[in-house]
Amino acid sequence: MTQGKTQMAQGAFASLHYRKTRDRIIEAILLSAGLVAVFTTVAIVFILFYESSYFFEHVSVKDFLTDTMWTPLFADARYGILPLVSGTLTVTGVAILVAIPVGTIVAIYLSEFAPHRLRETVKPVLELLGAVPTVVYGYFALLAVTPLLQKVWPDLPGFNMLSAGLVIGLMIVPYVASVSEDAMRAVPKYMREGSYAMGATKLQTALRVVVPGAFSGLAAAYILGISRAVGETMVVAIAAGMMANLTFNPTEPAATITAYIVQVSLGDLPHDSIGYQSIFAAGLVLMLMTLVLNVIGFFLTRRFREAY
């Protein structure tokens, strides 16, 4: 009996030792998996800085930021990033004018009005829309939306930022709607009941209590949506034309930063040419833009986080 007890105790210690070792191994595996993501990010940032440093040896930062022409592929090469930034901002602007109102309305409907069954059907379908390859959206913009718009404005060029922006907007609606809906659903039921009990209608409750209550989540949804619009490549490359053009007029053709990068990456420029290096400088600007957006998003969500 005594012996049995001792054996059991020893067994327990042995298994404790085994368990600790096993936990440590699992921890190491999980940590290394996490580190892959961190390392990749660091490597991307490093390469962007490293490669663009060659570019900035030939082009001054002042020219890069103030020149109004971007023609690295011409004989008379000019390296002003502004036309690409204006193109990116214009396309993004059109896209968010579509995505934020439509996405929010869809989210309010799904979260506050739609019957349970409908919501459970529509949400997966919405999320499925995110799985449509962006190249399909690009051709949709070029071959369906642009001709449609040309019926209203016959002067609209075949390539233009308006149809690219509209389609990107539609493309990110499901995304904005889905994240917004999650945020609104997270507003507790007793908060809504408080509003209904005061005599509020569903719409009043949605607009005056649920939306403010979900603000931090909505801000996150919008910022993520804007980031996606800024980074979207295929649609603009296909439908907006590839000509850098310093304008904020969406009915004109223009190139965005991403479209330019695609254009050069797919071209046959020698890898040590200054034109090739320019895509790293452009990529750096793009990364900084999305970084700024994410930082704003981070502080917005923190500032407005509600503790229920």
Binding site: P188, Y190, M191, E193, G194, S195, A197, M198, R208, V209, P212, G213, F215, E306
Partner: peptide
């Protein structure tokens, strides 16, 4: 009017 079990002020 109604007052609930859990205090539920609006945000």
């Amino acid at each position: 009017g109604m007052v609930f079990q859990k205090p539920n002020p609006f945000p």
